[in-house]
């Protein structure tokens, strides 16, 4: 069974197409310059509709996380980490930490991570994160 992915809506299409093309798009307001996520056609700080998309740096740190031990029918195995990642741009979002053993000994709060991509089915790619340091313990 394939993992259940997002069902894209008109307001999020540009974001998810970006992800398929290897880009994580954030937005900012042309009026008040605030950066925001998830994607919208207006700025949630000032309500202005004049917004801009740009590719995020893809750099961030692990803000917090849990390691799920209960099976989820569409996921191949557990335990797996669900994390809040804080991007360099100040945005926090939910993602996974991959290419590292899924244990609290290896995954650390504050650990620098970088964007990578996981293809879960034809046409569906997810933005996930991996440790920046190739020599980090537990890297696989």
């Amino acid at each position: 069974m394939l993992k259940i992915g997002p069902q894209i809506t008109p307001e999020t299409e540009s974001f998810w197409v970006g992800v398929q093309n290897g880009e994580f798009k954030l937005q900012n307001c042309k009026d008040c310059s605030k950066i925001f996520f998830p994607p919208r056609f207006f700025c949630p700080s000032c309500g202005d509709r004049n917004v801009n998309s740009f590719a995020a740096s893809g750099k961030g740190v692990i803000y917090s996380y849990v390691i799920n031990h209960r099976p989820r029918p569409d996921w191949p195995d557990e335990p797996y980490c669900v994390a809040i990642v804080e991007l360099e741009e100040g945005i926090r979002l939910v993602s996974n930490i991959v290419n590292i053993e899924q244990t609290p000994d290896h995954i650390q709060i504050g650990m620098p991570v970088k964007l990578c991509f996981e293809k879960i089915s034809e046409g569906i790619v997810l933005p996930v994160f991996e440790p920046v340091d190739d020599n980090v313990a537990g890297r696989n």
């Binding site: 997002p6 069902q7 998830p38 917090s64 996380y65 849990v66 996921w75 669900v82 997810l126």
Partner: peptide
């Protein structure tokens, strides 16, 4: 919003969402 930006990353009920900030 949950279905696009949280659930695809392994959310498995409140135990994987309500708890997320606790470690921090």
């Amino acid at each position: 919003l949950n279905g696009q930006f949280d659930f695809p990353f392994g959310y498995n009920g409140a135990i994987t969402s309500f708890t997320l900030p606790a470690m921090r």
